[in-house]
Simulated scan of single mutants.
Amino acid sequence: MDGSLDLATRDGLPEALRVLLAEMPRSGWQDHPEYGPLTQFWLERHLNFRRLLDLLQGDLTARVDGKLDPRDHAARLSRLGGMFLGELQQHHTIEDQVYFPKLAAHAPELARGFELLDADHHALHEELEGFATEANAVLRGEAAAPLEARVAQMHRFLDRHLTDEEEIVVPVILKVGEGHL
């Protein structure tokens, strides 16, 4: 994979992977005749991951600033962190094993894009392992600042990945139709 496409450094998709997005821009997705419950659910899952990460970040900042009791934070971190990790792992597994192969077969011109998304999932998996390790340290009573820094970095990585994934996947779904997936 081209180093300029690395999740840690890229700032968007290259033009070659934006061909369908150019035909079906984000602003028209909800009005497209093939926009249906699957696409809506999928985008809502992405929004939920962003929201969970926002909650985790806010709690960590409050904890580091002394505005959230460590016991209260531990309970929230355990619940929200577990939900975030479990649901994101499940989401990526379904995408990798079911949706990406089907979508790639319908849009061979975007094969490189699906390879990029797969590489993102591997990079994110490493970040999630680091998150789990540092979250467990916080739950054991260690400082929250390292986890706060990791979550800030993860926020950027995850948002970049989700945005790029949406810009590859949704236009393919709209092109093919949900009934063909």
Rank of each mutant, 00 (worst) to 15 (best):
F41R: 15
F41Q: 08
W42H: 13
L43K: 05
E44Y: 05
E44D: 14
E44R: 10
R45T: 06
R45Y: 04
H46A: 11
L47C: 03
N48H: 11
N48M: 10
F49D: 04
F49E: 04
R50H: 09
R50N: 07
R51Y: 08
D54F: 10
D54H: 10
L55R: 13
L56C: 07
L56D: 06
Q57R: 12
D59S: 08
T61K: 12
T61S: 13
R63D: 01
R63H: 14
R63A: 12
V64K: 07
V64I: 07
V64D: 07
D65C: 00
K67T: 05
K67G: 05
L68K: 11
D69I: 04
P70W: 08
P70V: 12
R71E: 15
R71Y: 02
D72M: 15
A74F: 02
A74Q: 04
R76N: 11
S78L: 10
R79Y: 09
L80F: 06
L80P: 03
M83G: 02
F84R: 06
F84D: 00
F84I: 05
F84G: 03
L85N: 04
E87M: 11
L88V: 06
Q89N: 10
Q89S: 14
H91R: 09
H91M: 05
H91D: 11
H92I: 00
H92F: 12
T93P: 01
I94K: 13
I94M: 11
E95M: 03
D96S: 09
D96Y: 02
Q97L: 13
Q97C: 08
F100A: 02
P101W: 03
P101E: 02
K102V: 06
A104K: 13
A104H: 00
A104R: 15
A105M: 04
A105Y: 01
A105D: 13
H106D: 10
A107T: 09
P108Y: 09
P108M: 07
P108D: 08
E109C: 09
E109A: 14
L110A: 10
G113Q: 04
F114H: 01
L116N: 00
L117R: 01
D118V: 11
A119D: 08
A119L: 05
D120G: 05
H122C: 00
A123W: 00
E129N: 12
G130Y: 01
G130A: 11
F131E: 07
A132P: 02
E134C: 07
N136I: 02
N136T: 09
A137P: 04
R140T: 10
A143S: 14
A143Q: 12
A144C: 08
P146K: 05
P146A: 06
E148G: 03
V151M: 08
A152Y: 01
A152W: 04
M154N: 11
M154P: 03
R156P: 06
F157I: 03
F157R: 14
L158I: 06
L158C: 02
D159L: 10
R160Y: 02
H161P: 03
